[in-house]
Simulated assay, not measured.
Amino acid sequence: MPGRLKIRLTESEAQELLKWSNDPKLPERTRKRAEMLRLNAQVWRVNQIASWMNCAQNTVRKIIQIWILKGFPGLEDAPRSGRKRTWREADIEYLENCCDGHSRTYNSEQLSELLKKERKVELTAERIRKILKKRAENGSGRKRVREGIPTPGKKKQRKRT
């Protein structure tokens, strides 16, 4: 049977954990971790905390161990794996301005070359197409409407005499 895990918090640590557990700007997992530590300091046992927080006992033990070793920095999420973005929002807005500001049209290959030349950002033509398409679907991109082409779903009304 493992020994009982119990932490003691100073007054300032207890207040800070209370702030963290009630702060809606923090991720939910960070708030839950802070709450687990507060409950442990209030002499709740690991199995009681696990059933209250609806998680495994090993999760509670792990959070307590991380607190003992690292303190507050251990409560935050670790950086996610994966490649970081090579472009910024301003780069895509630049491309949209180029498309809207010039009288000529660009294909995705030309936009890729333009972005590489002007902004020193390398994106493939395929990636530019996906980003611009996603922006248009979410409503954050500029909508292009050509006159004379009926939109699907709208039928012309017949004149009744």
Rank of each mutant, 00 (worst) to 15 (best):
V43T: 12
A90W: 00
N138D: 07
D77G: 03
E35S: 14
I128Y: 10
R88D: 12
T30Y: 05
N107F: 05
K84C: 08
Q110P: 05
Q57P: 11
D100A: 14
E137K: 15
E113S: 11
T59C: 06
E76I: 01
C55W: 02
A125N: 05
K25V: 08
E28M: 08
S108Q: 11
A90P: 01
E28A: 13
N22V: 04
S21V: 03
A90C: 04
A41N: 11
E89D: 15
L39S: 04
K62H: 10
N22A: 12
S21G: 04
A41F: 07
E96F: 02
K70H: 11
A56N: 12
K120A: 14
Q65P: 00
I63F: 04
I128Q: 05
S21L: 07
L111N: 01
P79E: 14
S140I: 05
S140Y: 10
N58F: 06
K133W: 08
K84S: 14
L123I: 05
I64K: 07
A50I: 08
S21A: 15
A90R: 09
R80H: 11
R85W: 08
G74N: 04
K70C: 07
R129D: 03
I64L: 15
M53G: 00
N138H: 09
K134T: 03
E137D: 14
W87G: 00
E118H: 13
T30W: 02
V43Y: 09
R119N: 06
I49P: 04
W44T: 04
R119W: 03
R119D: 05
D100C: 07
N47S: 11
I63K: 01
P73C: 05
R45F: 12
Q57D: 14
L26E: 07
S140R: 13
A41H: 11
H102C: 09
R83D: 08
R45C: 08
L132K: 00
E76S: 06
E118N: 13
K120G: 09
A50L: 09
L111A: 06
E122A: 09
R45P: 01
Q42G: 07
M53F: 02
A136Y: 13
E126R: 12
R127F: 06
W87H: 13
T59H: 10
S108G: 06
W44C: 03
S112T: 03
A136N: 09
K25R: 13
R80T: 13
L37H: 10
S81T: 05
G82K: 00
D77P: 00
L75S: 02
K25W: 09
N40W: 01
S112L: 07
R119L: 02
S81F: 02
P24F: 09
I66Y: 06
R104M: 08
S140T: 15
A56W: 03
K84A: 15
G139P: 03
L26C: 09
V43K: 08
V43A: 09
K19Y: 10
L18T: 14
D100R: 15
M36I: 15
S112A: 15
A41T: 05
R135Q: 08
D100L: 15
L26D: 06
P79D: 10
E113G: 14
L18Q: 13
W20A: 05
E137H: 11
A125C: 06
N40F: 01
